[in-house]
Design a protein around this nucleic acid. Structure first.
Length: 454
RNA sequence: GGUGCGUUAGCAAAGCGGUUAUGCCCCGGAUUGCAAAUCCGGUCAGCCCAGUUCGACUCUGGGACGCACCUCCA
C-alpha cells in the first residue's frame, strides 16, 4: 500500500484516492521565458516517476502540469528581445518539450497554458469577491485579503505574525495587509495589448497564483488528490493556491501535497537569481540523458541533490554496470510481480517513492544476472518502471560522445583478432592500446570481441 | 529575527532499536595470452554531549555546523 509524505502534515500517510482506482495530480510547471535548468529537470523527472508508479500500481491517473505563459519576466524578456509574448513562450515551450522528451519524461495528460484560462480565472476572482475574500485597491489591482482566510499559513506552517516578523515583505499602501497578494493586475501604461484582458475591474492580467487554482479546478475538479512542485513553491505560491481555491470553491482543495528537494551547486540552491544554474541542454551536451535521469532518481525526491561533473561521472559508471548486465537481453520485458526482488522494489516505491532503495534492488538483481542470466528480463522490466534501462544495452555502452566510427573500430578489432590468431600479442596489444587511447575498451569473451566506450 | 529540513564510511546515497544496504573508488583472490567485464573476499560509517534501553547510526533532550523558506524561483 502506497504511502506519501504529505507536506500538509509533514509525515508519511497512507494514500487513499478520492475516487477508488483514480488519481488526479497537478504539478506546477515552468514559466517559459528561458531554457529549463537542472532544477526543472528534477521536477519533471520526479513527478514523471510518480506518474509512472501510480499507473503501474493500477490507478487511472490524470496528470496536469501547467505552463505559465504570462508574467512579469516574460513581458520583460519579450520586450528585450523585441519579440511577441506568444513567439517567446512558444519557443521555450518547444524547447521544454525537447528537453523533457530526451529525459524520458512522459507528457502529462494536460499541459494547460495560463493565457488559455483567463475567463476561468476571472470567474474565480469574482467568486472570491462575492465571498468577501477579494477587494479592488486604490491602484486598481484586485487583491486577496489574507486576513479573511483563517487557515492561511497552514501548508507552510507559518502564522501571519511569523511571516510579518521577517520584514522582507514589501509594504504596499494599497494592500489591506502586506501579505495580500494580487489576483488581477491592472494594466500598466506601456504594456503591450497582448498582455491585456478585459474584466469587470478594468483591463489587466492575472496574478501568478490564480492560474493554478483556476486550471486545476477546471481540469481535475475543485477537490483532487495530489499537488506537487518544487519546495520553493510551498510558500507563498501553494499557500496562496489553497487560499484561492478553498476561498472560492468553499471545499477542501488538495489531499496530498508533495514537494521535491532542490538541485544544488556547491551546496547552494541552483536558481536563476543566484545565476549558478546549468540548463538541461548544456548538461545533455556532456552526459547521456539517461545518466541524468538516473542521477536524479538514485537520490530520494525530497533530499537535496548536489550537482557536479564528478557525481554525473559516478552515475554514468553505475548505470553502465546495470546495462552491462543486460548485454544479452533485448526486447520488451514484463515485470513478474510475484518474484522476491520485484516485491522489494514495490515495497520501496510504495514507501514514499523511495527510488534509491528501488535502484539498490536493481543492482542486486544485476548481480544475480551476472551469476546466472535468468534475472535479466526482470531487471530490464523493473528498470523500465523508472523509465530506465529501456534502450539496447550495447547501444548505450557504445554511445559515448562520438569519436571513432563503428566501422573503423570493427576493422581494427578484426586486425587485432588476426594478430591474436597469429600469436602476435605485441601487435594485438598495440591495437588495444590505440583504441583505449581513443576511449574504446575492448572485451574478449568466448563469443568474440566486443567494445564499449569508457 | 521567525519557521522548517538535514548532518551516515574516500565520494554518492538508503533502510533499520540487535542480523551484508546499494553504487563508484581502493586492496586481495579467481578468471584472462595480457586486459576489460564478471565473480568471490576485504578495508572504510553514522557531527558532538547527555539520557532511555539488556542493546542506538536508528528513540528523547541539549549543542555545533550546513541548507532552505519568510521577495521572483522547480
Amino acid at each position: 500500500m502506497l504511502k506519501i509524505h504529505n507536506t500538509l502534515k509533514r509525515e508519511k500517510q497512507e494514500f487513499k484516492p478520492i475516487k477508488p482506482g483514480q488519481v488526479s495530480m497537478y504539478v506546477c510547471g515552468m514559466t517559459v521565458y528561458d531554457y529549463c535548468h537542472l532544477g526543472h529537470a528534477r521536477v519533471m523527472v520526479v513527478f514523471d516517476m510518480v506518474y509512472r508508479w501510480l499507473k503501474v500500481s493500477g490507478y487511472e491517473v490524470t496528470y496536469v502540469r501547467n505552463i505559465t505563459d504570462i508574467d512579469d519576466k516574460i513581458i520583460r524578456r519579450a520586450g528585450e528581445n523585441g519579440e511577441s509574448i506568444h513567439s517567446l513562450t512558444q519557443r521555450f515551450i518547444d524547447a521544454m518539450h525537447e528537453d523533457a522528451d530526451r529525459l524520458g519524461v512522459q507528457r502529462p495528460d494536460h499541459e494547460p497554458r495560463a493565457t488559455q484560462f483567463v475567463p476561468e480565472m476571472l470567474n474565480m476572482i469574482e467568486r472570491l469577491e462575492e465571498n468577501g475574500l477579494a477587494y479592488q485597491a486604490a491602484d486598481m489591482d484586485v487583491n486577496f485579503a489574507v486576513r479573511k482566510f483563517p487557515d492561511y499559513g497552514r501548508l507552510s506552517g507559518k502564522s501571519l505574525e511569523d511571516l510579518r516578523a521577517g520584514e522582507r515583505v514589501e509594504v504596499d499602501a494599497n494592500k489591506h495587509d502586506p501579505l495580500d497578494f494580487v489576483l488581477w493586475k491592472h494594466a500598466r501604461s506601456g504594456e503591450p495589448e497582448e498582455v491585456q484582458w478585459d474584466s469587470k475591474w478594468g483591463k489587466g492580467r492575472p496574478g501568478w497564483h490564480i492560474e493554478c487554482s483556476a486550471m486545476s479546478s477546471r481540469l481535475l475538479g475543485e477537490h483532487f488528490d495530489i499537488h506537487g512542485g518544487g519546495a520553493d513553491l510551498q510558500f507563498p505560491h501553494h499557500e496562496n493556491e489553497i487560499a484561492q481555491s478553498e476561498g472560492a470553491n468553499r471545499c477542501r482543495f488538495v489531499n496530498y501535497w508533495m514537494h521535491n528537494g532542490f538541485v544544488r551547486v556547491d551546496n547552494e540552491k541552483m536558481s536563476k537569481s543566484l545565476g549558478n544554474f546549468f540548463t538541461i541542454r548544456e548538461v545533455l551536451g556532456k552526459y547521456d540523458p539517461e545518466v541524468v535521469r538516473f542521477f536524479i532518481l538514485r537520490a530520494h525526491y525530497r533530499s537535496p541533490l548536489n550537482y557536479s561533473d564528478a557525481h554525473l561521472d559516478d552515475a554514468k559508471d553505475a548505470l553502465s554496470r546495470l546495462y552491462t548486465a543486460l548485454k544479452n537481453c533485448s526486447g520488451h520485458c514484463e515485470v513478474d510481480w510475484n518474484e522476491p526482488f520485484a516485491l522489494r522494489f514495490k515495497a520501496a516505491m510504495d514507501d514514499d517513492f523511495n527510488t534509491p532503495e528501488a535502484v539498490a534492488v536493481l543492482f542486486e538483481l544485476a548481480n544475480e544476472v551476472n551469476k546466472g542470466q535468468a534475472a535479466a528480463a526482470q531487471l530490464k522490466a523493473l528498470g523500465g518502471v523508472l523509465g530506465l534501462l529501456e534502450r539496447d544495452a550495447v547501444a548505450f555502452l557504445q554511445g559515448g560522445n562520438g569519436g571513432a566510427g563503428d566501422d573503423a573500430i570493427s576493422a581494427r578489432i578484426q586486425a587485432r583478432n588476426e594478430a591474436k590468431k597469429a600469436k602476435n600479442y605485441a601487435e594485438a596489444d598495440r591495437i588495444r592500446k590505440e583504441l583505449l587511447d581513443e576511449g574504446i575498451v575492448l572485451e574478449d569473451s568466448a563469443q568474440g570481441t566486443t567494445w564499449r566506450r569508457a
